[in-house]
Amino acid sequence: MTKILVVTSGKGGVGKTTTSASIATGLALRGNKVAVIDFDVGLRNLDLIMGVERRVVYDFVNVVNGEASLNQALIKDKRVEGLYVLAASQTKDKDALTEEGVKKVLDDLKADGFDYIVCDSPAGIEKGAQLAMYFADEAIVVSNPEVSSVRDSDRMLGLLASKSHRAINNLPPIKQHLLVTRYSPTRADAGEMMSVEDMLEILAVPLLGVIPESPAVLNASNAGQPVIMDKESDAGQAYEDAVARLLGEERPLRFITAEKKGLFSRLFGK
């Protein structure tokens, strides 16, 4: 059975693409056949984060329009077995994607024996975002501990529960997960940032993971390598935990408490 995941948030810049890349890579590293699809038509970036930007010949819209086959458009990752990227088109035509077109591509991927299809949603609640989540079985809602992001996440949770294929056809609802990104335990302890508990209380969705604010994320995107592959890094390990939880494993939360300060920094530090 193919599982369709959507990574969404409403707000831009919170880490949807970073998350899509790492979750897809993590699932493939565990032996799954995974396709990760960029739904951000006109502003594709997943190819850069995955480090395959120079190998894009055909894209999602080409496949939908029948200008290329799915096999021609799927970019096979050279590092991880079983991982494939489908890039978004750079066309300015907003209506390039249609519900039927997306359904056809997803059905073809299912027929090809993919275990997971990860849909990287664009920001906003326009067509691209609606199509990215429409056919989802599970949703990862990415949120920063920031008022605008949390509010938009709540909007997305509402849309997932009312405007998806599952909701409209009275099927079991999309399974929702919250992934908190750019978390700083030190600032949360100081009362400068909402805590994970605060966010859970407001959004009331099961927590998939907490990704700490980390220089490893920018390093990874600079290099075109999903941060989950940086196994030494805190963010990479936090994503690996999230993938394990997605697959039903129990993992204690890490990187959510501030590091103990030494005597020196406690006396003279901030």
Partner: peptide
């Protein structure tokens, strides 16, 4: 009062309001 507490309170009010309107 910390800014995080303020953020949480503001969110709880606006989200309750928006949920009532949209759901």
């Amino acid at each position: 009062e910390t800014s995080a507490k303020l953020a949480k309170e503001r969110l709880q009010i606006i989200i309750a309001h928006e949920r009532a309107q949209t759901r």
